[in-house]
Simulated scan of single mutants.
Amino acid sequence: MLILFVIFSALVGIQLIYLIVFLVAISKKRTATQTERLPVSIIICAHDEEENLKELIPELLAQDYPEFEIVVVDDRSNDTTFDWLLEETSKDHRLRMVHVNRTPPHVNGKKYGITLGIKAAKYEWILLTDADCRPLTKQWIASMSAQFNESTSFVLGTSPYVKVPGLLNAFIRFETLLTALQYISFASLGNPYMGVGRNMAYRKSMFLQKKGFNNFLNVTGGDDDLFVNQHATGKNTKVVIGEESLIYSLPETTWSSFFRQKTRHLSVGKLYRFGHRFLLGLFTLTWLLTWFGGIPLAFVPEFTYLVVGALLFRMLFLVMVANMAAKRFGVRFEVWLVPLLDFIYAFYYLVTGLMALVSKKVRWKN
Rank of each mutant, 00 (worst) to 15 (best):
D83A: 14
A201Q: 04
K235A: 11
I17F: 10
S145C: 12
R363S: 12
S77Y: 00
G309E: 13
V6A: 14
F68C: 11
D92K: 01
G212V: 01
S159W: 00
I184R: 01
L250W: 02
G212E: 01
E55S: 10
W364T: 13
I344N: 02
Q261N: 15
W140R: 07
F292D: 13
I42V: 11
D223S: 06
V98A: 12
D225F: 10
K54M: 05
V362D: 11
P135S: 03
L226A: 06
G195N: 13
L86F: 08
R173A: 10
L128N: 06
L11H: 07
V335C: 14
V362A: 08
G212A: 02
L354Q: 09
L208R: 06
Y348W: 15
F347N: 09
P39A: 10
E67Y: 06
G281F: 03
R37Q: 15
F274I: 13
M97E: 05
A46R: 04
F148C: 13
H93M: 12
I70C: 05
F299K: 07
T81G: 11
M144A: 04
N191Q: 13
I17C: 11
T220F: 06
T89A: 03
D223H: 05
A180G: 13
S9Y: 09
Y123A: 04
L306C: 14
V358G: 04
Y193H: 09
V319F: 01
A146G: 13
F292V: 15
I70K: 03
C133T: 15
T253I: 13
N366W: 11
K119I: 01
V40A: 08
S205F: 06
L208V: 11
E36M: 01
W125G: 05
S77A: 01
T137F: 08
